[in-house]
Each structure stands twice: as structure tokens, then as C-alpha cells.
Write a protein that binds this DNA or RNA. Structure first.
Lengths: 198, 198, 198, 198
DNA sequence: CATGAATGAGGATTCATTCAT
DNA sequence: GATGAATGAATCCTCATTCAT
């Protein structure tokens, strides 16, 4: 005899997908891939366990979808450095990485934790090559405009990337001084630590 | 309810401990803390499941013991840079980190994967402060002898450490060019990437 | 790692709960708390091991739920003596206890076996105080109406309760002659065994 | 090069047996049959796990041996009531039971907990029949000497025994007032609770 | 689309028992 | 006699996945 005259505010499929992904973000980030429980994802998403499986066929697929969605987000975020002045771009790159890590600490942490998960491989390669391309672009611009010295770009770019990534890692690990360290890294990358003689 | 078994006492307790630790190294490194199964550790160690518990009361203790034992190993390994010339020491530091990562890829990978595991905290802090100390020593020496320019050591040291760690991370992640990249990092850290004007 | 199963949803949740409780009754009663295996409860309930945990979060909770449910049952059963004539009430009390023990032998046996289990304490105290109250009521009535002699009720009630409980214990232990012994206890409690002189 | 010049104070086999039995007493009593661990018995006995198996082939046998040894002890303790005056003997019986329960609370508690363990059956029957015999003796004496009224001894004896046992059970369960309750039981058994009319 | 009860393999841990020393 | 490391079955509990409703 119970009738609901006002229709339950139903989610569209897309809403549900989004909710699940958002919940997955929290749960995976908080406990790692192995430690994450589908039930927790379901609870946090306000959906039933079975409901998840309508949108994602396995835990693995859910995880991958999460990574994909976050990567898009990140690429958009980092893209803005593309048409800045070289030195400025480098600074912006470092800051962007660190900002992103601050905003999405748990996700970046997750990437680290699952850095060698086999299923991540294709996605990871996509990501790396795109990041390397951006940095190569910056270095090339700098050399072309005479701001940066002559370097073998293909060797230098990965190293610059490493340094930036290392800073992020330190932030995740120790958690302090993101701002001050980004300044310092910028300065060291530009000038080195050696005394300029002559 | 009646159980009958036939124990095989072939090893000394110390042997078993070592075997278990070695097996734990492989299993934890390969699958992370949560993903590692005690049964797999046992199989790989050539001991029974119960046998592990004679030497390590819980999975957590086993993991911690593994970390402790490896940290000692690493500290010994890295200690040799202490009394080198500053620039040389920096190069040696980078190489040592990378060498270690090459030799013990899976272990270093494990550190990354479990970088935020609560139980690791005390051990991690010990490690970090000891590494920072070493680098501060190198920088100080360099400044004292006029090889390095004036820097705020307390800000520079963590950044240098970050860069080295970033390189290790890249090696783990992409796996190529350890040698060539270590050269490049050394050079960039010393000279920066900017054109020296004047 | 991949699991595929085929659940059989034939019962309502309430049915399952009831089935599990019934199975728990048998298993706990038969083997005691420590000796009881969740798997056996599951098998007997016609449910999977995991299924139990949907309704009862731990073995301890299952046990407690069982005790609670049975205590309610018993209190209903014993309540009817409240408004009888004193002597009649005493007889009914003895009979009720014994009847209950006959009907639910294994459960009462379980109470005995786990009489000092820490987790039972609150429940036990509830039970004891309620039983003592009933008996004090009977004795008071009897004294008021002059059927029973003057006694210190607070001392007598626990002893009467002990005697009844002892009879139950004997039934559980030896298993014979419930009927005849209840008569005898009634008579001895009323008249004692001493020769009435004068 | 370590020599022990003074010979280790070695135990004889009998000593070890006794130590094990004493340890078993504590462990079994404290945790019940299923909950008791052989290792704990060993530790408490100051012997190795394997050592126990020299004296007792299984856990079950150890338990039985414990019961046997304690039963002998009890029979000796209770035997002294045999040649007292009837009423006095009854009082002594109640007190003895209660005293014993006070002294060996945990053991008596164990009997209760494992009261239906199949392996205990033969021992239990032995015990019961001996206790019933003693009580029948007291009642018979009392009737013969005219102190007690005419009763069917075979029906009364088990009931008297039940009452005594019930008192012990109450002591174990609630733990208070052993002294005061034994007085009360004695009085009620002798006189009953009914008003003596006429 | 959504639900959530059900499944059962698998995980960490315990423990009676054995046997080489 | 005595030791204690070793065994492995068994315990409680978790969780990815399925499917009747």
C-alpha cells in the first residue's frame, strides 16, 4: 500500500559511473589495490555491490578506469605550460606537479604504490612519453632561444623529469615544505651547485 | 582431529631465519605487503607455514624484520662516500643509489609501494635523517673548499636527495639507461641547465 | 584469484538468521564455545561460511545472540509461576526448570559448560537476578499467607534456587529420573528430612 | 669450553609427571579442554613440548590422568564424613563440598565445563555412584537412629546430592556467600520451609 | 538498472604431534 | 630422558563475484 508519489531522484548511468569512480579513488588511494574492498567502494558510492559490476566488469577494470580518468585530468592540468617562456615553463612544471600532488596526494601515492602493477603498463607508458615530450619541448625552446646551454635533449629530459618526480616523492614521503623545495629545485636545475669560475 | 606429521630438521634456526627473510624479500617485493601471502613465503623458503611463526610472530613483524635487515645492508653500502672529495662524493652517491637499485630492484620497489604503510614510519624517519645528514656533509665540504657555491644547505640537501631518489624511481619505473642517466644527473646538478653568461 | 560462484537466494534474511541460530544451538551446545567451528555451523545451517558473517559479525556475537534469544524464551516459559499459590508455584518452578532442561538439554548443558566465559557475564547477571526475584516473590507470598515459616528471604532464596539448579545439573549429568526427582525435591524443600518431634 | 661442574638438578620421571599434571591443572582449568594448549602446559611445567609426550601419549590422556588424580584427592577429602552422627555428617558433607570448591575452584569449574565430554563418562559414573553411596549411608543411619523421618532412600539420596551440588554450582557461578549459604542449605534440608502445623 | 544475500577460495594464525639431535 | 624446530590441518574471517528478485 505504500506508494511513492514523488519519484526517487534516480541517478543516470553516468552519475553512477562517476560516483563509483569517485569512491574508488578514495578507497584505492587509501588502501592500495590489494587492500581495497569492492564493498567499501560500493558503500562509499552509495550503490550496491552488484551495482558496481554493471559499470565495471572486474576490480581490475575499475582500477584501470580510475587511472585513465585521472590521467586525463592531469594532462589537462599540466598542458598549460606548453606555451610559456622556457624558464618560466620549467618553474610552472615543477609547481604544477607539486600542486597536483598536494591536491591529490592520495592518488599520486597510489600511483607510487602500484607502480609496477602489470596491468598499469600500457597506461604508464602513455603517460611517460607524454611527459617526456613536454619537457623535451621546453628544453628545445630554451636552447633555441639561447636561454639554456647546449644539451643532449634526449638524455637531459628524462633526468629533469626524474628530479621533478623525486620532489613529488619527497613530498609524499615526508610531507613538508613543498613550496620552499620547489623554489630550490628550480634554482638548482637552472644553475647547478658548482661555483662558476671565470 | 588427529594429526601426524614428520618434521624435517635439516637447518639450524639461523639458517631458517635467513631463508625466510630471503623468501619474504621476494614475495613482499613482488606483491606488496597486502598482496603477499604467508603461504608463498613459506613455500619459497622451503619451510611450512607454521614454521615461519617460530621465527616471526606476525606478518607485520616479518615485514619489519626484512626492512631492518635491508636498511643495515644499505647503510653499509652508502657509507663509503663519507670521506671522498665533494664532487666525487656526489657522483659516488648517485651511482651507489642506482647500483643498489639495480642490485635490489625488487626491494627498492617495495619501499616505494609501501611508502605510506603506518608500521614503516619509525624506520623511514631513521633512514631519511641519516641520508640527509650524509648529503649535508657533502655540500658543506664542497662549500668549505670553495668547489660549491654558497647555498642554504638545509634547503638544498633535501632537494639533492629528491633528485637522486627521483632517478631511482625512474629506473624502477622505466628500467632503462641507469648508467647514462646517472652521468646526466651529475652534470645537471653541478652545472644546471642555464647558459652561463658572462 | 578469480572466483566465480553461484549464490542460491532461496531464503529471506530472517529465515537464514533463524537457521544459523538453530545450527549454532546444536554446534555450540555439542562442543562448547571454543570447540565449535563456524564451518560446522554453516554446514548445518545449509549456508556458506561467509553467509554467517552477513548476519553475525563474529563468532562471539553469534554466541551472544544465541544466548539472548534463548534467555527470552526461557523467561517467557518461567514467568507463568508468578501468580500461583506459593506451594504450587514452587512445584511449578521446579517442574518448569526440569521441563526446560529436558526440552533443551543441549542448551542448558552449554550454559554449564561456558558458565565462566567472560563474554557471558552481563547476560548471566541479568538472568540470575531475575530468577532470584521470582523465588523471593514466592517465599514472601508463602510467609505472608502463613503457609511458609518465617525465614530470612534473602538468604533462603539463593539456596532454593541452588537446589533447583542442582537438580537440573543432575539431570544433565546422569540423565535419569527427572520426574521422580522433581517430586522428591519438592517434598524435601517443603518438609525437610528431619523427624518432626512434638 | 663451558663446563657445568655442578650437575644440573635433574628431575626424576615422577617429578616431571607431577609437574606436568600440576601445570595441566592450571591450563585446563583456566581455558577448558579445547582451549588448552599443550605448549602452555609445557611452559608452565618447565619442560619442553616434546617432553610431555614422554609421559602422556595424547592431550586426551593427559586430561584423563588429571581427572583421575584429582578424583582420588577428592575421595580422600570427602571420606571423613563416613563415621559421624547423621546430622553432623550432612553438615560436614555440605561444608566439605564447598570447601573443596573454594580450594580448587578452577578444577571444579573444569568438571562443570566438560561435564559431557565423552571421554569422561566412565570416570564420572565411578564418582557419582561413590557419592550416592555415601549419602545413602548418612540417610540410612539417620533413619535407623530415628533422627530422620522415613524416606525412600534411593530417591532422596540423589536429591540431597543435587542440592549440595547446586550450592557448589552457585558458588562457582556467583562466587559469594559460600559460608552463609551452606548454613542455610543445611537448615532447609533438615526442616524444610513449610510451617509446621500441629 | 539496482539490490544484497550468498558463495567459497584464500588469508593469517594456532596447535597437537613428531623426530633428529 | 629431554629438546624444540618443524609440520600441516584446522580455525576464524574476508572479499571478489554472481544472480534471483
Amino acid at each position: 500500500m505504500k506508494q511513492s508519489t514523488r519519484p526517487t531522484a534516480k541517478r543516470t548511468g553516468d552519475d553512477s559511473r562517476r560516483d563509483i569512480l569517485a569512491a574508488a579513488y578514495d578507497v584505492f588511494a587509501g588502501r592500495g589495490y590489494a587492500g581495497a574492498a569492492m564493498r567499501d567502494v560500493a558503500n562509499r558510492a552509495g550503490i550496491s555491490v552488484g551495482g558496481i559490476y554493471i559499470y565495471f566488469p572486474t576490480k581490475e577494470e575499475l582500477y584501470l578506469a580510475l587511472l585513465r580518468s585521472e590521467m586525463e585530468d592531469f594532462n589537462l592540468y599540466i598542458g598549460r605550460v606548453a606555451d610559456m617562456e622556457p624558464a618560466q615553463a620549467l618553474k610552472a612544471l615543477i609547481d604544477s606537479y607539486l600542486d597536483y600532488a598536494v591536491r591529490k596526494t592520495k592518488l599520486v601515492s597510489l600511483h607510487l604504490k602500484e607502480h609496477d602493477l602489470e596491468i598499469r603498463k600500457p597506461l604508464k607508458e602513455l603517460f611517460l612519453s607524454s611527459q617526456h615530450r613536454i619537457i623535451r619541448g621546453i628544453l628545445q625552446d630554451g636552447m633555441d632561444s639561447g636561454v639554456f646551454r647546449k644539451m643532449e635533449i634526449d638524455r637531459a629530459a628524462p633526468v629533469v623529469f626524474s628530479c621533478v618526480r623525486g620532489l613529488v616523492l619527497s613530498y609524499l614521503s615526508e610531507g613538508q615544505g613543498a613550496g620552499t623545495q620547489s623554489e630550490m629545485l628550480y634554482e638548482i636545475l637552472l644553475n647547478g651547485i658548482m661555483e662558476k669560475t671565470g
